[in-house]
């Protein structure tokens, strides 16, 4: 286990990069996923088609394909470096966002758009758990579709969607390990792999170290969800 202590720096810096990927992708996925869910339940048919197509595509493709396609898509769109994501204020906190190489930004987008499909479905299941009468009452008062979602349906759907959303985000955190295979240097998984391949360290303790890094993010998230769930049960 000395390998963990000796290479503490490698694990900590890897953890920090992975953490940045996760926070940024999760934020993007939650925003995009909410929009997609809103489209899927919208009264406007073309919006519903777009929402449904989005979920069908990104929920059913392997994540590796999405990673590949993201780089290709940015090149196709004439922004091969995805520079528009070098958001000034944000890049000073999430330092990786502003660097020259585009792979970190590709990884955020790939994980974000992929996870958004699952977020959308979790939110939609939450919306379905809200009794139809709630939206009907809101409509009868003259609230528009967006007002209805924002003030009546989504606040109640959120409660029912919290637990499935948590599972989606936990899955996303674990999926972020794939970023190392797509050019993101210095994230937790690739840092660990480098220790075994280039550094010649034994695999088992190194992988235990990587696992610990992921557990530090996923276990507290899971505990938080359990507590939310309990509070929700008590509130009923």
């Amino acid at each position: 286990m000395d390998v963990l202590v000796e290479n503490r720096e490698v694990f900590v810096s890897g953890f920090w990069v992975t953490f940045q990927i996760c926070v940024l992708s999760a934020t993007g996925a939650l925003i995009l996923g909410t929009l997609v869910a809103a489209m899927r339940i919208s009264p406007v048919a073309p919006l519903r088609w777009v929402g449904t197509a989005y979920v069908t595509v990104f929920r059913n493709l392997p994540l590796t394909i999405v990673f590949f396609m993201t780089g290709a898509a940015f090149a196709e769109l004439g922004a091969p470096n995805a520079d528009l994501l070098k958001i000034p204020g944000l890049s000073s906190v999430f330092t990786r966002l502003g660097i020259e190489l585009p792979y970190f930004r590709f990884a955020i987008v790939a994980l974000g758009v992929y996870t958004a499909a699952f977020v959308a479905e979790a939110i939609r299941s939450g919306v379905n758990a809200v009794p139809a009468g709630q939206a009907e009452a809101a409509r009868s008062l003259g609230l528009t579709f967006t007002q209805n979602l924002r003030y009546v349906v989504l606040p109640q759907a959120g409660k029912a969607a919290v637990v499935p959303l948590g599972s989606v985000i936990i899955a996303m955190i674990k999926n972020s390990a794939l970023a190392g295979a797509f050019g993101v240097t210095g994230e937790l998984f690739s840092n660990g792999s480098a220790l075994t391949s280039a550094g010649g360290y034994p695999i088992v303790p190194v992988f235990i170290g990587i696992s610990l890094g992921f557990l530090v993010m996923t276990v507290p998230l899971g505990l938080m969800l359990d507590r939310l769930e309990k509070r929700r049960a008590a509130g009923r």
């Binding site: 009468g133 709630q134 009452a137 109640q156």
Partner: peptide, 11 residues
Amino acid sequence: MVFQSFNLFAH
């Protein structure tokens, strides 16, 4: 409109 099941906003 007033509904049979009230439909007050529960939250």
